[in-house]
Design a protein around this nucleic acid. Structure first.
Lengths: 198, 198
DNA sequence: CAATTACTATACTATTTTCGTATTTTTGTA
DNA sequence: TACAAAAATACGAAAATAGTATAGTAATTG
């Protein structure tokens, strides 16, 4: 569903803002309309129901994320920098995205929604792995590296950056991210490309 | 209303947590009970209705704040340090407290609630001013200083610490707080007690 | 042990909220 | 003026929520 209209966009924005904070269940259409400065009739002109808006918000966010990722991959930066940028945006989005929103999405009785998310997630996952492999062929990453593993690890990241021990060890959540990036980039073997500083 | 019971306390805690995030309107009693691990009947054993829980949460928070303030005033620190500590906790609480919660409180149709808040606020305000005046008599602050003015200014603080210009000027929100504290403590006249560092 | 207390689970009604649509009014515009 | 888009309002149906009643279970206490 392409969003081109002005009112439609402000509805989308309002939906994003409210869903983000409070999740999808708690927000009523009237509320979205109020924030968007649109009437309910206008809402139903552009979206069949609340679920459709939620999907649109979800899609929009995923698209933005993918775009961001693409920019990082295309940029002329080193493997280390790419990795760090990726982990950082991942960490950011995790911190900003309301868990509420995803919770409501996942725990919807309408299992149609779950399938929808699963599909979308799988698609994005594939795209990312492909981009990785392309970069790999260009020599940005070592040839026997498996992108799937990195993605799996990055799923664990939210737990890492909020771990008090790690944060204390590294100084700040940002440093945790960088440290992990360095770790994955160079492993633990010492080499001449980088020097580890305390 | 004194809270002594165990279940009652977990209900209060759950209420605080949920109200804080989403405000008072959006949260149902069932939800509070679920989080608190209590049944609805238990809820109604301790609270007449949802509003009572909200009031209890509000009271509890105000009491905590007042206690914190008292500790600062009683402590053997200088005027500057007291002021900074006060502004800092104020800034913290403002950043942490959900605006949602207060919004729901203020915009309740039941104007009884508004009066309740107004009363409580006035009480706390008076207590604080009194504490100030006592400290003033002990010589902690200059004798012709008017505590009311400081409180008035501190109402404006949330706007200050989020002002991009000020934050950039001082380096960080924390620095803004300290700078303001210094400003109010020593004014702008140079003296030998402190040196202003860039 | 018996009695009391604290609590849970469930079911139920009344009330409120929300949804989605229909109708009328306003606004912007060719 | 005429016309289309959107707002405001109203409204019935469906869903969520509040608050109560009942029955029964677990934990405490004398």
């Amino acid at each position: 569903m392409k969003v081109t209209n002005k009112k439609q966009q402000s509805l989308l924005a309002a939906g994003r803002e409210l869903f983000w904070k409070h999740g999808f269940r708690r927000i009523s259409i009237d509320e979205v309309c109020k924030v968007a400065g649109a009437s309910k009739m206008t809402f139903y002109r552009y979206f069949p129901d609340k679920l459709a808006l939620a999907k649109a918000v979800f899609d929009d966010e995923v698209d933005k994320g993918t775009l961001q990722f693409r920019e990082i991959m295309i940029s002329e930066s080193s493997a280390s920098e790419k990795l760090e940028a990726m982990l950082r945006t991942k960490a950011d989005s995790v911190n900003n995205i309301s868990q509420e929103f995803l919770n409501d999405f996942y725990s919807d009785k309408d299992s149609d929604l779950r399938a929808y998310i699963a599909q979308k997630t799988a698609d994005v996952w594939n795209e990312i792995v492909n981009d990785f492999k392309m970069a790999q062929q260009k020599g940005v990453f070592r040839s026997d590296f498996k992108p799937e593993i990195l993605l799996y690890i990055s799923q664990q990241l939210p737990g890492f950056i909020n771990d008090p021990y790690l944060v204390q060890l590294c100084g700040s959540p940002q440093e945790v991210v960088m440290e992990i990036a360095r770790f994955f980039t160079y492993g633990i073997a010492p080499n001449d490309k980088t020097t580890v500083e305390k």
